[in-house]
Design a binder for these strands. Structure first.
Lengths: 217, 217
DNA sequence: CGGCAGCTTGATTGCTGTCAAAACAGGTGG
DNA sequence: CCACCTGTTTTGACAGCAATCAAGCTGCCG
């Protein structure tokens, strides 16, 4: 866990800074925790760049990844002042930490926080659909499409980065690591994607992938 | 869709009115829609009493129930001004409709809305855990426990009302109606619950039920 | 009484989880 | 540079849970 500040991470797009807070964001290396499940919630965090994941642990050390946050997303919202999940950077991240007072003081920022919280709620509800109605293949395809969208790769063919591990994907989609692997290789044999390396997916046919993702809403 | 004001619904508990808005709530009969998926979002709604459910439909008419709202919960939050799900009363409900201006004007109400939105987000994330990590039996047990909690039945033995249909439960828990039925009768044979009528569950042993619900967080 | 909708029960299939082992990548030290 | 080690990913074999299809059952209402 050496805290080397690696600045050669590849920012595929410029974070849309709608508001410039007082403090400039801090750079967090990959796999750095922001807060832990059970911590008192003192701050809000706004992601400027990079990927943060939040997860929840159960007694038997089972894990549910509740979301991946990218540029523009907020973290640390809670109804009771206690963090319900742990947040940890997946990649190197630029993150702004905001106090409650700072939010209160800034009407516009407050509005943005509320809107983003609503968005996260919608995404969580979409996820409920994914978890219950989609097959394993559809889940994996949908996950890749989501990543592509977040990386603004709207072209029909694109390389996307998978910074998280297979286990992370499994814990997000609610399936076993083996099934994730199998479905990925299945997509590969179908010529829809290529897997040049473990953390890179080349999408040959975005249209086909989206069909397989079964976006039926 | 006759708006008859039926006042003989059974209020099992007094709604905790933390804030008294300008308008008194309106009574909505059961199965009355508040808004539909795709509608522009003009208002927020605050539930005073009764049960409202929200759901999302897919092209192939599959349905995911995203939540059941009871006294104190808000509806109508959205990130883009469009409703992402449909809200419909399950029972007769008392509901306050609030404009955005009214929320803006009232600092305290605004705070309450935000807190409740965070709570809904947490609940949605808890639901993700339930959907992925729990077996069918655990899901059904957990659902009954949730209902008992909302109906403030904290005693070890209690009658709880199941106002929604088996299909609703299935669409909430992400399983088939047959499995819901089977798991309920399994709980009955285990003497943990009784099923005096279709919409009433008698809990014989809340402790056992909670164990079966597998609350491992 | 008949009809209908919702619910329960039964039989069967198949997807996905589990266990197990092999392949692979990345890092370390000789 | 190679051998080795370790953790991750892939592949394989198998079992089990829950979905599906299908048939009865119950309560309700005309």
């Amino acid at each position: 866990m050496q805290h080397q500040v690696v600045e050669n991470f590849t920012p595929t797009f410029v974070p849309p800074i709608t508001k410039t807070p007082t403090h400039l964001g801090r750079i967090h290396p990959e796999k750095t925790p922001l807060f832990h499940q059970g911590d008192p919630s003192k701050y809000f965090y706004k992601v400027r760049s990079g990927v943060v994941m939040t997860y929840r642990l159960l007694k038997d050390s089972q894990r549910q990844i509740t979301g991946f946050c990218t540029a523009g997303d907020f973290l640390g919202m809670t109804s009771d002042g206690i963090q319900h999940d742990t947040a940890i950077t997946v990649t190197t991240c630029n993150i702004v930490r905001l106090t409650r007072a700072e939010i209160q003081a800034d009407k516009e920022l407050q509005q943005e926080l509320f809107t983003k919280t609503c968005l996260q709620l919608e995404e969580a509800q979409d996820m409920m659909m994914t978890l219950t109605k989609k097959s394993a293949s559809e889940k994996v395809a949908a996950f890749l499409v989501m990543l592509a969208n977040r990386q603004k790769s709207e072209t029909n063919e694109a390389d996307i980065r998978l910074p998280m591990s297979r286990q992370d994907i499994a814990d997000f989609l609610g399936m076993s690591i083996e099934t994730v692997s199998r479905r990925l290789t299945a997509l590969k044999s179908k010529q829809v994607i290529g897997l040049p390396s473990r953390h890179i997916v080349h999408i040959f046919n975005m249209g086909a992938l989206k069909k397989l993702a079964g976006a039926r809403s």
